[in-house]
Design a protein around this nucleic acid. Structure first.
Lengths: 198, 198
DNA sequence: TTCTTGCATACATGCAGCCTGTATGTTAAT
DNA sequence: ATTAACATACAGGCTGCATGTATGCAAGAA
């Protein structure tokens, strides 16, 4: 057995350094926020130097971007696993919402994706990342429901946007220790209201 | 007639400096964001020195706090003016929403109150400011509706929170140039859905 | 009343420490 | 030997504080 760190392949070496940076950054940013987390602090925790950081990422925001991408991908994966077939449109949306809440319940994830991410990268870029990592599921669901007559004939993009806002707020509230069941009930009520009880 | 700047009272002097700082900060922060706006830049635009800034505000975030308070107060004032009596609960909520959208349509206001503010001060402090400047109107409306049987018997705080999230998102979208009418239609649909059509 | 004298408020200037991003040097893998 | 993966050193800029200055103000003496 070799020394722990010697004779790693370049790919391994690179991957390990990158992972260490991302994990260190993640824990610090979750704890203190992006602006209050300095790069010297991150590299100290990751046990590398700032040279490594700026070798892997173009700047501090780029590190944040990678962090956000990872979380967004994890969300998409969790949701895809947890999604099952549902009978009614209401059940379908509620299952989706619950899956989203579960995925967002991972420690620190809501803070990264709903607070720090938008602040650092801006809403435009967050939306972009959302699209790339598997967003738009909600809009698809609405279109499907509308096509089958479960929905009134109104512009769907705004509606999807507003519903998405409620899911985000609910996820944030739950991650802040609010009563999950109460927020699910309120979510269900909103969804039920817009779906014709056909 | 005296020199323009001489022989002002302390109160006048103080008020003018403070106003100049707030206006300069506002325009720069709206244009470039809080993090990208440096205090040397602000004081240059306000035509004072950093000494004045740190005399009036404890730090850069405190300046932002004052800015947010001003906007929040302006919102409350605008809404109070524009609010009229309505017939049905749906109309009442929609009028409130429209007034909110109008108030939030002031240039830069949505960015300050919905993007930069939460990022800099955090959600807790933003909620605090909201309470102090006249928030909670929505929750009151819901309680009123519930008391008169227009609303299903569910926890109202979460529902108010979720509705508030939709109003914020709609205001943000509108301020970003999205179709106001479409967002109002979607908002109305959500509200109509939760109100028993009694 | 008017003048001046002491003082507090409102600001200006200078400095220390930290942080970011880049440029250049060094080591390890291929 | 060459290149990728890092480490080190440095320049510029920013924040907050500490210290210096001037201006309005209030009270007492003339």
């Amino acid at each position: 057995m070799q020394e722990a760190k010697s004779r790693r392949s370049q790919a391994e070496r690179r991957a390990e350094t990158r992972k260490a940076l991302l994990e260190a950054a993640r824990s610090l940013i979750v704890e203190k926020g992006y602006a209050e987390t300095a790069t010297p602090e991150i590299v100290k925790k990751a046990d590398v130097t700032r040279g490594a950081l700026y070798h892997h990422f173009s700047d501090k925001a780029d590190l944040m971007r990678a962090l956000v991408r990872d979380e967004a991908l994890a969300i998409a994966e969790t949701i895809n696993q947890e999604t099952d077939e549902s009978q009614t449109p209401l059940d379908a949306f509620m299952n989706g919402a619950k899956a989203y809440f579960s995925a967002m319940a991972a420690p620190g994830r809501a803070k990264i994706l709903l607070l720090e991410g938008p602040a650092v990268l801006g809403l435009m870029e967050m939306a972009e990342i959302d699209r790339e990592t598997g967003g738009a599921t909600l809009l698809q669901g609405l279109k499907h429901s509308a096509a089958h007559g479960y929905l009134a004939d109104i512009p769907l993009e705004p509606l999807a946007d507003l519903l998405s806002a409620t899911f985000d707020r609910a996820a944030l509230a739950i991650s802040n220790g609010e009563d999950r069941h109460a927020y699910e009930t309120a979510t269900r009520m909103l969804l039920k209201g817009i779906l014709k009880d056909a």
